[in-house]
Structures are given as C-alpha cells and as structure tokens.
C-alpha cells in the first residue's frame, strides 16, 4: 500500500490542493502484483480499477493528551483487541484499533493524514511490529520509536501533512496488513505536576472509494470508432490496430487490399487506408496506446509494503 505521494510528486506542484489528490468517480487505482494473489487480496493483486461511484468522505479525528517523550500507537485496522506479540513499543499503548479498513473487497479507503499543529511527530510501520517504513535501509541505523536518536528518521511532522491540506495518504483494503502510526510527543503544550503534556490531534479524512476492475470496454473507449462505409487514412507516423466487422478492409501502402477478420486485430502501417463495409470498426493508433500508457502511469499505483521496505 502506498504511504505518501512520491509517485505523484513529479507532476504536482507545491500549490496542489488536497481535493485534487483525492480519488473521485472515474479515478484509477492499480495494485502491485506484490499483493498476495490469494483469498485475502487476490481480487486486487496486479489489477487496475476505476472508482465506479461517487466517493464518500468521512472525517475521523483522533486526539491524545500525552506526556513529553511518550507516545501512543494508532492502529488503523479493524482488529479491536490487537495482541500482536513482539510489538516493540510494549502493550500499554494498545487501545484498540481505529476501524479504518473496508469490510468488503472492491473498496479502497484513501486516508489523508491531517496533522494539527503541535510538538509531535509520527512514525509509520506496516505491518505492526516491524521497523518503520521510512528508513535508510542500513542495519547500522535501524529506526524505531524506542531509539532516542533514530526515532527521528523518516518522522512525519505536522508541517509535512498539515490538517488544512494533507499530502500524506495511506490506503487500506480488506485484509491488507496493519497500518500503524506511532505519535511521539516531542515537547509539550502545558505543564502539570512538573511534567510537560501535549495534545496531538490527527484528522484522518477517509475517502471511501468503490472500485470496478478495468475492462476491455474501458480500453476500447480510448479507440477511435469508424462508422460503416467510411474510409480513414492512417496518417504519417501512426501505426494502427484495426478491429472491425465483416467487410472491413485495409489497403496497404503497396496497394494490397486485405480483409480484416471479424474478432481479430490487424496492424495497419502508416499510409494504409481503412475502409469499413456495412459494419463499423475501431482503430487504436499508437497515440491511443501512448494515451493508455499515460493513463496507466497516472493511475494511483499502490505498492505492497514490502516494495517500500525492500529498497
């Protein structure tokens, strides 16, 4: 699952608005094949989806008053009583989980993490109990909330994803590994009994997106239809894939006429002419293919967490 905007930042500006980054009806999601192709996440593994209906935004504020140099654990899953052994931060912070995962397949929750101002930071681990996602990859400097020096590695501060325009997104699907945030109070707002306390408030904006897998029809929508009894010239520099009904013919630059077999595609070179008979045809040019690839690239790519921890 994706954890921040790095796949998008190459084509967004600092002035980007959060609502431009939120998925809407018609937005695309592509899941890495590293999602296990099994009963749990097989429906998503390696597949591309389109948001099929209007999305629903749910603001979900979470606040904690904690002492300076202390932390709380926010588990976004639907496991109400996590008892995961080997949790590095102990069990006292296990307060139950936040229920931010869909209960059904074919739904993705796009979760914007909006951090209100305060003297705290967040560390992300996927799944629970593992070393944080944002790390240098060197075993000499393993990050972790318990380490007084390396807990700052890859920490996200309120300025990184402010509550008014969050730019840090998490994605949850049914049965995906646990997303765990640890919020660490590094300072304080007020002092009681000689100890500094502070409030860390995160407003999660959960964008509930129903999904439909991309179909051949979606791809075909990029192609150019040719009505019956029409002639189209394949322009210079364009190679086209022609699919047509009975009677569709392609005349090559060498003036050779070839009938297109219904149900099969024919590659027409530059300079060819496509003529339809009584039925229609569609041509998909390389421009369309490029457009398709661009759409694919712009689809929000959701890598499995091991991709992030692996480099």
């Amino acid at each position: 699952m994706i954890t921040d905007l790095s796949p998008l930042l190459h084509h967004v500006t600092p002035a980007v608005r959060t609502d431009e980054l939120q998925a809407k009806k018609g937005s695309w999601f592509r899941f890495s094949s590293l999602f296990p192709d099994d009963q749990k996440t097989g429906w998503a593994s390696g597949k591309t989806f389109v948001v099929s209906q209007d999305t629903l935004l749910v603001d979900y504020p979470v606040s904690n008053n904690i002492v300076n140099q202390d932390w709380v654990t926010l588990d976004l899953t639907n496991q109400t009583n996590p008892t995961i052994p080997g949790v590095p931060h102990g069990t006292a912070a296990q307060q139950g989980t936040l229920q931010m995962y869909p209960a059904q397949p074919y739904i993705v929750y796009q979760i914007a993490v909006g951090m209100k101002p305060g003297k705290y930071f967040c560390i992300l681990s996927i799944p629970r109990g593992t070393i944080p996602i944002y790390q240098m990859g060197s075993s000499a400097i393993p990050p972790g909330i318990n380490d007084p020096v390396y807990r700052y590695l890859g920490a996200k501060y309120p300025k990184d994803s402010p509550v008014d325009s969050p730019t840090w997104f998490l994605y949850s699907i049914l049965n995906a590994p646990q997303i765990v945030l640890q919020t660490f109070m590094d300072g304080g707002d007020t002092m009681a009994a000689g100890v500094l306390y502070g409030k860390c408030t995160i407003i999660f904006r959960v964008n509930k997106c129903p999904l439909r897998q991309i179909s051949i029809a979606d791809v075909a929508s990029l192609a150019t239809p040719i009505p019956a009894n029409q002639t189209v010239n394949i322009q210079s520099g364009r190679v086209a894939l022609v699919t047509g009904a009975q009677g569709t013919q392609v005349t090559t630059p060498q003036k050779q006429t070839i009938a297109v077999i219904p149900g099969k595609s024919f590659v027409a070179d530059t300079g060819s002419t496509v003529q339809t008979g009584n039925g229609s045809a569609v041509i998909t040019t390389m421009d369309d293919v490029h457009k398709w690839q661009t759409v694919q690239e712009r689809a929000l790519f959701i890598p499995y967490y091991t991709e992030l921890t692996g480099f």
């Binding site: 008053n65 002492v67 932390w71 912070a93």
Partner: peptide, 9 residues
C-alpha cells in the same frame, strides 16, 4: 485534562 493511555501510562 485527562492524560490518555500511552506507552508509559
């Protein structure tokens, strides 16, 4: 105010 459950509390 009430201090919430945390790693230390």
């Amino acid at each position: 105010f009430t201090q919430d459950v945390s790693n230390l509390v």
